[in-house]
Design a protein around this nucleic acid. Structure first.
Lengths: 103, 103
DNA sequence: CAGTTACGTAAGTCATCACTTACGGTAAGT
DNA sequence: ACTTACCGTAAGTGATGACTTACGTAACTG
């Protein structure tokens, strides 16, 4: 829930979105991702750390490699945030409408 | 739909989120928002411009004031993006599972 | 037990962007 | 017409953070 700050922060960077979106096909290794993206491998590692701390990805070891895959909780938190916000916006709008015109 | 880049970019800033969230109760003026947030009024104006170009808010004139309120399209685009991403992630996961172990 | 592969982290640089002050413009009030 | 209130924009500055190179570590291979 108050994950959302980290989630939106993480998804706020274009490179990080690119990295995150390359994971929707399944688990991938760091160097493998780095080949598809115009930044160095360490940069990818750093981005993955941010994505991980936001609950958007999980990692597991596979020999010398490290596989990253999409995690549910980050997106779930974001969705909950959107739902909540939208609901509050609706009730706020309704209340304003019932008050009549404007303030 | 490819609004989403701008939407996530806009929501990626904490101050902008704070401003955006103060709008869920109904339309508010710029100076009114600026009082609740620890930045100057011009800064709020600039943030509102970003939020507007992302389809997250709309504005209308009210005398010398300018009222900003939540817009639906930005959040709708974001939700569509999430849905799409999640669906692709699921099918990708399923395909990987049906392939057996790993690559 | 070297050598190789794959990765994370540290340190430093550079660019982006958030913020401020200053200014101009429009609408309402006197 | 003058003043006041409210706002957007321009220009310049400062700080955050994205990126690179260099280094150290863990696991597989011969």
């Amino acid at each position: 829930m108050t994950y959302v700050t980290a989630v939106l922060d993480a998804l706020g960077d274009p490179t990080r979105r690119a990295i995150f979106e390359r994971l929707h096909g399944g688990a991938r290794a760091v160097g493998e991702i780095a080949r598809d993206v115009p930044v160095s491998r360490p940069a990818v590692s750093q981005h993955l750390r941010v994505l991980k701390s936001a609950g958007l990805v999980t990692d597991r070891a596979d020999g010398t490699r490290r596989l990253y895959s999409v995690s549910q909780e980050g997106l779930a938190a974001l969705r909950a945030y959107l739902d909540d916000f939208w609901e509050q916006a609706l009730t706020g709008f309704k209340a304003a409408a019932e008050r009549g015109g404007k303030s």
